[in-house]
Amino acid sequence: MKKFLVEFWKSYSIVIVVIVIGLVLGLLAPRFLTKDNLINVMTNASLVAIVGLGMTLAIASGNFDLSVGATASFAGCISFSLVPILGVPLSIIAGVIVGAVVGLINGLIISELRVPAFIATLSMMTIVRGFTLIFTNGRDLYLFGQTEYKILSGQLILGISTPIFFAIGIALLFGFVKKYTRFGRHILAMGGNLSAASRSGVRTSFVLWGIFSIVGATAALTGMIISSQVLTANARLATGLELSAIAVVILGGTALSGGQATVIGTLLGALLISMINNGLNLLNVPIFYQELTVGALMLGALAVKMQKGFKISSLLRSRS
């Protein structure tokens, strides 16, 4: 419990920001604080949060994955096309597996061919999008009458939607993994000091495969949820998801340099962006202000954080 509070305290700044912005939006747009709207906000936050949680592990290990958007759309399309054969539950599981396999390939390229994660996942992004285009022939896939699939995005209990449960469930799971499993500690060790980790006998290749498989699986889940919202899947789905996912993680307080991760921060980062987007919507601000806000938030948050070590960092190691 004490550790939990410490963790919570570390990300307190974003908690305060979330609360303040929530209150301001509530004052400006009374509809913001209604239950339906809040659930809507949280659902949208969950979509990015799920893949963001996977990305948190990758960034904690000192890597990141630019292929998540492509993987999300690929898994959505594969899963949709499997529904007539396997039925809904199995095809959802198949989608997750497909995502994990794509992730595993990323991990293998990085560990076995020694291509930097940036380039490996960048190439995979192009390749996987291309495969998805070939697979769908560039057309939309629909699931007529398969409303069962809506379970992924629909309401589950008490009007709370499935993605929220997924996001919270995965956050709890990853929080546990990070704190109480050797896999989790080894992720942090690799991110903190890679050569120390491997000299201590940490099987860095295995850990990498695990991390990227997980990122792939979370990306696939996000992709299928997005597809299920409109019961349509295509190869253009989730473009730019990779950058949003990284933004959410950074905003949440996980350092890009690795070795440290905050699962709660990522959830809150996603919530913050979703709240602002929703609030701007309610205030009739055109939708295209949203991207600007995300960017400004990210830079603002980091600029504030940087003020502490301003002098030293700007002198010597200001760059990634």
């Binding site: 950058l243 933004a247 991207e291 990210m298 301003f310 990634s320």
Partner: peptide, 16 residues
């Protein structure tokens, strides 16, 4: 001058 890493700065700027 602010000391944000190039990755994050330019990522943020791309959104803005």
């Amino acid at each position: 001058k602010v000391g944000i890493s190039a990755f994050i700065t330019t990522l943020g700027m791309s959104f803005i």
